[in-house]
Design a protein around this nucleic acid. Structure first.
Lengths: 343, 343
DNA sequence: TTTCTTTACACAATCGGTTGCTTAAATATT
DNA sequence: AATATTTAAGCAACCGATTGTGTAAAGAAA
């Protein structure tokens, strides 16, 4: 096997007896290069298998056209859809995407933020790790005018772009839907310790919906979970069903939890939705497949990704407007399916 | 907001009255730098918020410590687990990961391969797009000694690293399991047009298992699908159930198809597994959650990712051995769950 | 004391594409 | 015909980390 060297613009320049700068300009259709030359250069570039070295371009121009994504994991449906959205928007503007998984660890998030900065990404899209309380490791981006967009799990006290849904309203709508279906004792699962506001907001919506419909709030119908997993959901639901007066409805702030609830109910001979109506959150693929289908709140993951990516790309092009540090709210919808349709 | 410049080793050098080269060496504990100097340099580097510019290092050293991943999509459970595996192995050796989705389009794969090359990734891990017949766009890596590893959906005629499972054996084992459960008429779903060998191999295993157990092969029990989706699965299963003598078992080469089969059967009042036993493939999360649980073939996604990443990292360190272009086979297991357990 | 080896650091080239400035020729304007 | 403008392309600095080579000074060996 031969040892090829990467083909550079200098190789092309030599072959055509032109200056490297001419090659560089010709390849980007610079106006000061004649059409003949441009055609000739592009032709030979292709023949020689020239591929520009983005490192060199990035180093010189301080522009990498790369968006860094820093999220807990790629395996959650919501997050992998988010990536898809980012990736599609990025691709349109010829940006690359570099992905890092914090696995919900604060230390990893810190390290990876550094690594992204080290790679001189053009912008960063982040959904915070569960563990993260302090967000000072993101200052390096803000301080160097690298656009930073938080998505979904966002810090409350950081002055930058945020793309979120209205979790309060979503929680309210979900709960209201259950009330409208005739539920009188609606349970809710939430996160035990949270540094963001995501689950708290959903819970607030739940509470307000109840109060607004004159349904007394009952502490024993609200269970805080350490982890939002299937098994944790099963355990919690069993506790609920063991109550003297068990709930007749549940707002689960995640579809996996909703699935666990539906299945636990079925196992105990509790009819869903007649005796126990369930609504989840996210519209994960599984919610459509499981039987009965799970009613859910849509979480526009791809749209959020697209919005976040566009914020970065736009912001890099436009002049910096201080007032652009806005929050983008995307809409959610109640998707009524079998698990909660009683009337 | 102040306009910070990125802190460079020159800034540190100036502050400490040292040469930039000394700073560079001190930061990597070069033996020719005194401990005092090293300590002093690291200290001020931290104080000044220095973060090395990997572009500069990559340009100079032609080493980026970045692994490029080129896959159809991140949303498939198998592939997102694959990424996780790669990412974890990469992280251990301080490599970054850059992900691109071909969305099963040949043209996108070509473009993205170019982009990865343009970014001078250290190595590439790829699972081919469905559309891809020609793999010449990967030659740029081979020609420039950039390690290339194909995973799962691999070309049959490309001389490079491959990390796969034994699809033939897996198909054989799955089918044999159904036979052992007493199934006599076992159906199979497969891909209509395939340029790789993945589904063909599974089908070969299916056929051989039948023949070996003196079960006649019946063409009408094998259905080729355009897409391996839930809906396509439902349609195919309805065709199967409409046969004069419908099947009493199914080997589906994907869990989504298995789920569709189980649910279609249930809807038609066919008892699973008693009248119709099903085994899937991949051990997707859903296979454990759906009721009845789906028997399946494990597909060691994380392990494959880990193996692929390690191949790249190892290969970059070690001297090039021509005979290293090997195929790594990882094991699969039959996971017997409710959907096929009759005895 | 002289010579050899470490130790400690500086100088300058290098990676490859970009871009401001300059030169030179061709075309347009007065 | 003289000057202004446009077109075409070259020169060289630059981005920031790395590394081979060079050069002192200090310590070790002869």
């Amino acid at each position: 096997m031969e040892e090829h060297r990467h083909v550079t613009i200098y190789d092309i320049a030599e072959k055509l007896n032109l200056a490297a700068s001419t090659i560089s300009r010709a390849l980007k259709d610079h106006h000061s290069i004649s059409d003949k030359t441009i055609k000739k250069v592009k032709q030979t570039a292709k023949e020689m298998g020239f591929v520009p070295n983005t490192l060199a371009a990035g180093l010189r121009g301080n522009v990498t056209k790369t968006i860094g994504i820093l999220i807990p994991t790629v395996t959650q449906p919501f997050l992998s859809s988010l990536i898809s959205g980012i990736e599609i928007a990025a691709q349109k503007s010829d940006y690359s995407v570099i992905i890092m998984q914090s696995h919900d660890s604060y230390q990893m998030e810190v390290d990876m933020a550094k690594s992204l900065y080290s790679n001189r990404v053009s912008g960063v899209i982040c959904s915070l790790a569960m563990e993260t309380k302090d967000t000072s490791h993101f200052k390096q981006f803000s301080n160097n005018n690298i656009p930073l967009v938080f998505v979904d799990r966002v810090p409350k006290d950081y002055d930058t772009f945020r793309v979120v849904i209205n979790n309060y309203l979503a929680g309210y709508k979900a709960t209201k839907h259950l009330i409208e279906q005739g539920c009188k004792r609606i349970a809710h699962l939430t996160a035990e310790s949270e540094f963001g506001t995501l689950y708290n907001e959903r819970k607030r919506g739940y509470i307000d919906a109840l109060l607004e419909h004159d349904i007394p709030l009952q502490d024993n119908l609200i269970i805080s979970l350490k982890e939002m997993t299937y098994d944790a959901g099963v355990k919690a639901c069993n506790l609920l069903f063991d109550l003297k007066t068990p709930p007749d409805g549940l707002f689960a702030p995640g579809d996996i939890l909703a699935v666990s609830a539906v299945q636990t109910a079925k196992k105990r001979g509790i009819k869903v939705p007649d005796q126990f109506a369930v609504i989840g959150f996210n519209n994960d693929p599984i919610s459509e497949i499981i039987e009965p289908n799970i009613s859910t709140i849509t979480h526009p993951a791809e749209k959020m990704g697209k919005a976040a990516a566009e914020l970065i790309i736009k912001n890099l092009k436009s002049v910096k407007e201080e007032d652009a540090k806005e929050i983008t709210f995307l809409n959610t919808q109640v998707l009524i399916r079998e698990s909660s349709r009683k009337i």
